[in-house]
Amino acid sequence: MTAETAPDHHSQTHWFLVGMRGLFSLPAIILMLSFVGFAAFTAEAKIPVGQVMFMTGIVWALPAKVILVGSMLSGAHIATAFLAVTLSSVRMMPMVAALIPEIRTSRTPTWLLLIVSHFVAITAWVFAMEHVRDVPRSGRVAFFAGFGMTLTTVNILLVGLVYGAVSEFPPIVSGCLFFLTPVYFLASIWVSARHRVIYWALGIGLALGWLFAVIAPEYDILLAGIIGGTLAWWVERMLRRKEAAR
């Protein structure tokens, strides 16, 4: 019997608390280190701490915030900033769309999913895709909400606390802090893959991500995602059909 079908004797509160405990996991700690770096970056850029905490809670995704801060610093028109942030955030749609069928039950109300979707960003997504299979289906939304809300709240407070306190790290430390994020994402996606198509998408996405960053830096992530993902899906489907025909 797997977590999918096992009867669940625990309450929603129990699964919310189990999700909260995810704060003491490797991905959460790596994300917090990234937010320490973000706080140092915004302090150096002289963005008031209240605005930094506000955007941490309301935007949440770190790449989107880096682009937003860049727009604020360059004095970009609000429409230009909106366009830049929107383009960087299209990836949220397939990420959320892939997560929803894993966590909802037939009775989960849509408004609840709309609320918890706010807490989706790369780290929470990778963590959730890895761990929801260990949670009975009826507890998954509570589990994700517990993790996402705690992680967001703690990072809002963290940014407020360390803002200004961190002036400058030694270069090796800040270099390693930055590098933690990509290597953590790589290892975590690999171990959490439950479908063969994930390995293909990871490999092709890395290669095309590099290629498009060189030839079309404005739309690199989008192009690599849509073209690379479709290619990975097509290749894996061909393989599956070949195996079925054998």
């Binding site: 397939p94 990778v126 994930i198 998408a201 849509i226 993902g229 479709t230």
Partner: peptide
């Protein structure tokens, strides 16, 4: 596949 490739 698309979501994973975007993150990649």
């Amino acid at each position: 596949a698309v979501a994973t490739a975007l993150v990649a």
